[in-house]
Design a binder for these strands. Structure first.
Lengths: 204, 204
DNA sequence: ATTGGATGGAACGGTATCGTATCGACGATG
DNA sequence: CATCGTCGATACGATACCGTTCCATCCAAT
């Protein structure tokens, strides 16, 4: 969300001014995601993105140096910020609550198309790889607090393999929704939460 | 693996003959996967595929009508046939064995890049969607026999929610390897198998 | 009021891929 | 041995993007 070259220029020449319109930057982000979801990352045309945002191609090249730079800023501008989870009192309740929130995110058609594309692209280019790990770290944070609370409660031992535990929590729902392509009922999500909780306890 | 138009033509004119070379078809499949993994599905150029296979573009257009048709036949020619799993005597042993086999498949760099791309593309076009579900069904078969054996042993109740169970088994390893992008040690896979087994038992 | 910088829009030459058509060569069938 | 379809190769016109450049315009800070 920070502009690039323009800031430096303004520091050097604080006289006359004209700042990149933030709303346009935002519109470009949205158009980029829409194109990404529609055609796939590799097939995103910056010309179409600009047209979709009602802008000229120049507006893009003025802000970012490459497609990857564009994608990077777009992704962490979106942030994917799920609200932090409140304490539900028990590990199973916390896990189930987390799954419900993840279900909301994965129901979004843009997310369902962009996330797997991001993973595939992460295996191709190093830049997308770092971008993917940044998104992953944001995710891990939520799971971590969840586990720490359980350990504080004594529901899980402090010797827990947290890496493995963090895989266990979101994976089944992601598999169901992204890989299989189906949205489970709320009842099924609850059952899933119970099973995952049992798996976590067995990890000790 | 069956040719398309040529068969019909041969039925009409059974005189002189010349059959599409099967080895070339195979080479085209391989080249297609290589390009797919390298550039992403949307960016696959049939020209490069042909060149990579040491063939002319005509050889492709002679066999398939569209890129999707090509992809479809390529995928189920590959088959992704993991050998069926032998009975290891217990549910946990069976699950762990399954995970080890899945780990072998997911270690393959081509698979790691193509699978998520396939899922993303499945959310975009109906043709790729049916292709994805076909691959999924092949997968489900293995998991199903695994569960049935456990139910026969009495380790799992017959009332088990198999759909949920089939999500639970491969998901954590897939998440770790494809989404996170890391390969777990054999020790970790074993722990994962134990946790999943506990989760399955809790699904009753 | 002037000035500087960003804006939308349009054009540029260059490259890549598309899908089709055509060629001579090869080889298996009959 | 004659035939006929596939083979690799090449050329074709048509699109689509690329990344850059120039323009007239508009806005905000001097």
């Amino acid at each position: 969300m920070e502009r690039k070259c323009s800031d430096e220029k303004r520091k050097r020449k604080p006289t006359g001014a004209a700042v990149p319109r933030a709303e346009l930057t935002e519109a470009l982000y949205r158009a980029f995601f829409a194109e990404w979801a529609e055609k796939g990352f590799a097939a995103v045309s910056l010309e179409r993105v600009a047209a979709r945002a009602g802008a000229g191609k120049a507006a893009i090249y003025r802000r970012w140096s490459s497609r990857v730079a564009f994608a990077a800023e777009a992704v962490d501008a979106l942030g994917l910020r799920m609200a932090m989870i409140e304490d539900r009192g028990s590990l199973e309740a916390d896990v189930t609550d987390f799954l419900f929130r993840l279900r909301v995110v994965l129901r979004h058609p843009l997310v369902r198309r962009i996330l797997p594309d991001l993973h595939a692209e992460a295996a191709r280019s190093p830049e997308m790889r770092t971008l993917n790990t940044r998104v992953a770290q944001q995710r891990r944070a939520h799971g971590s607090t969840l586990l720490e609370r359980a350990m504080a409660r004594g529901e899980l031992p402090a010797t827990l393999n947290t890496t493995l535990a963090l895989d266990l929590i979101p994976a089944p729902l992601y598999w169901r929704m992204v890989v299989v392509g189906a949205t489970p009922s709320r009842q099924e999500v609850a059952e899933m939460g119970a099973a995952i909780t049992a798996g976590l306890r067995a990890l000790a």
